[in-house]
């Protein structure tokens, strides 16, 4: 808000008011606080594990210039790609359809519950919103029962496994896609509803007078106006699903269908101790897709979380 810059008689340092200097120092200091664990991780991830001493985890590997910092090597990243490769592929197979389905269905639900207004829709909508706050523990055991003992998804996939690119274990990923779609729906619906409430009613009313059907209104008017919101929703869902561990742990459990977060838990630990360069490289590799999305679309991510 109002600043004190340049007020006569105030303490100043190099022409800046002391107040501003303190302000920027705190802001930069907090920036360091948020970045240093990531910076340390990046620096450690490019150290040759054999030369790693751990004395200066925050410095880049500068041996022989600076002793004790280790030598530069991409070996940890190579190890991370080898260790997480399968998990990364599975995560991509999971996250792309789950993000698209939850976004599309969320937009449709919000349209049916907002743009077309009818009595009692708020009651239905409250059930959607409440779904955002459910601790997932409350559904885990039924979910495992459902996918392992009720739905014969595995039996469906067994004959399909002869097709190219289809493996029998993919049934677990399909189960995970449907699960993530269902549990992502509440937040997607909330985000789209907030957007649709702001759209003016005039266009929809005019279309209705012209005798346009509900689906025409959605396809011709609402969907084109939803594109900015789809970006927000897709980014949010992508991050959420990519980062999830709990559902993967309880639905995939273990085996070939394990996703990247599952593989990351155990990486870099062996009988001979912890391989920190490998572990940091793996953590960064697993975080890379969401980090890139955040760096390039940060404003949209902020919009998603603030809603």
């Amino acid at each position: 808000m109002s600043t004190e810059t340049g007020r006569v008689g105030e303490w100043s340092l190099f022409g800046h008011s002391l107040r501003r200097v303190v302000l920027y120092s705190i802001l930069v200091g907090m920036g360091v606080f948020y970045l240093i664990p990531i910076e340390t991780g990046i620096m450690t991830s490019i150290i040759n594990p054999a030369s790693y001493t751990g004395s200066f985890p925050y410095l880049p590997p500068l041996e022989p210039l600076v002793p004790g910092t280790g030598t530069l090597s991409l070996e940890p990243w190579q190890g991370a790609i080898d260790g997480l490769g399968q998990g990364l592929v599975n995560s991509v197979i999971l996250v792309v359809p789950a993000t698209i389905f939850s976004g599309l269905l969320g937009s449709m639900a919000a349209f049916g519950l907002t743009t077309i207004s009818w009595r009692g829709q708020i009651g239905i909508y409250i059930l959607f919103v409440a779904g955002i706050f459910i601790p997932y523990q409350a559904v885990l055991v039924p979910l495992t029962q459902f996918w392992y003992n009720v739905v014969p998804l595995q039996a469906v996939f067994a004959p399909l496994a002869t097709l190219p690119f289809v493996q029998e274990y993919h049934w677990k990923l399909v189960a995970l896609i449907i699960t993530h779609t269902a549990y992502g729906l509440p937040i997607c619906t909330l985000l789209f509803r907030a957007h649709y409430k702001k759209l003016s009613d005039e266009m929809v009313e005019a279309a209705q007078l012209d005798g346009a059907s509900v689906s025409t209104i959605y396809r011709r008017i609402i969907l084109p106006l939803s594109i900015p919101m789809f970006a927000v929703v897709f980014i949010y869902q992508f991050t959420q699903i990519w980062n999830d561990l709990l559902f993967a742990l309880t639905i995939v459990q273990f085996g070939d269908a394990a996703v990247v977060t599952q593989d990351l838990v155990g990486i870099g630990v062996s009988q001979s101790g912890t391989n920190f360069p490998l572990r940091m490289a793996a953590a960064l590799l697993a975080a890379l897709p969401t980090l890139l999305v955040y760096i390039f679309f940060g404003d949209k991510f902020a919009k998603g979380v603030a809603a």
């Binding site: 449709m108 349209f111 049916g112 009818w118 959607f128 459902f146 699960t179 779609t181 509900v214």
Partner: peptide, 27 residues
């Protein structure tokens, strides 16, 4: 209107009805 817009809100609603509320009841 509730019925005409049902193709849009009902499938998602059934999905959360089954997976969220059905699962909670089952739990």
């Amino acid at each position: 209107d509730s019925v005409r817009s049902a193709p849009f809100w009902l499938p998602p609603f059934l999905l959360i009805g089954l997976f969220i509320y059905g699962a909670i009841a089952w739990n």
